[in-house]
């Protein structure tokens, strides 16, 4: 095996789990949670703003920017404690992904996703225990699959 420079630098811990560091970081995350709502509000406002740009100028570049905003939300909303926002954002990102060759993205379907994200955030909807929210998420996902299937 080649030399392990990182191990020489920072040492080794049995099982690779530094429990002291994990406890400190979890405590820091608890403190940070107070900011999560504001962060998510920022990210959702940004999504809505980019959606406005895409509605006016539905270019490939705007679609890409809207995709990145949805993709960000998909990855982060769960961390912030909003799984419904993450799920709907994931569906929106699927619709907008460049890998999908459909040239025209239906704005109404984009808007349905953005509205669902805004409501899920405003009402702190938990998809796990809200049947209406679960049905809405499922319906949006089905519409995207239908759209991508052509």
């Amino acid at each position: 095996m080649p030399p392990n420079i990182l191990k020489a630098k920072v040492g080794s811990v049995a099982g690779g789990i530094d429990m002291g560091a994990i406890k400190r970081a979890e405590a820091a995350m608890e403190t940070l949670k107070a900011e999560f709502n504001d962060w998510l509000a920022d990210d959702i406002a940004r999504l809505a703003m980019i959606r406005g740009g895409f509605a006016n100028t539905p270019t490939k570049a705007m679609r890409s920017e809207l995709f990145r905003a949805a993709h960000d939300l998909k990855g982060q909303a769960d961390t912030y404690g909003y799984p419904m926002v993450a799920r709907v954002a994931s569906s929106l990102a699927n619709l907008l992904d460049e890998a999908n060759v459909n040239p025209v993205i239906p704005l109404a379907l984009v808007d349905a996703h953005v509205a669902a994200i805004q409501v899920a955030f405003r009402d702190k909807v938990n998809v796990a225990n809200d049947a209406v929210a679960a049905a809405l998420a499922k319906e949006l996902e089905a519409r995207v699959i239908e759209e991508l299937a052509g």
Binding site: L6, V10, G11, R24, M29, W39, D42, Q76
Partner: peptide, 30 residues
């Protein structure tokens, strides 16, 4: 524990909140 204070880490993310989140974790690690 690891001597994380010896480590140099670059965090790259276009979302400032995600950068702050990851950096907070790393700082707490040391």
């Amino acid at each position: 524990g690891y001597r994380f204070e010896r480590l140099r880490v670059l965090v790259v993310d276009d979302n400032p909140h995600m950068r702050k989140l990851v950096i907070t974790i790393l700082q707490a690690f040391g």
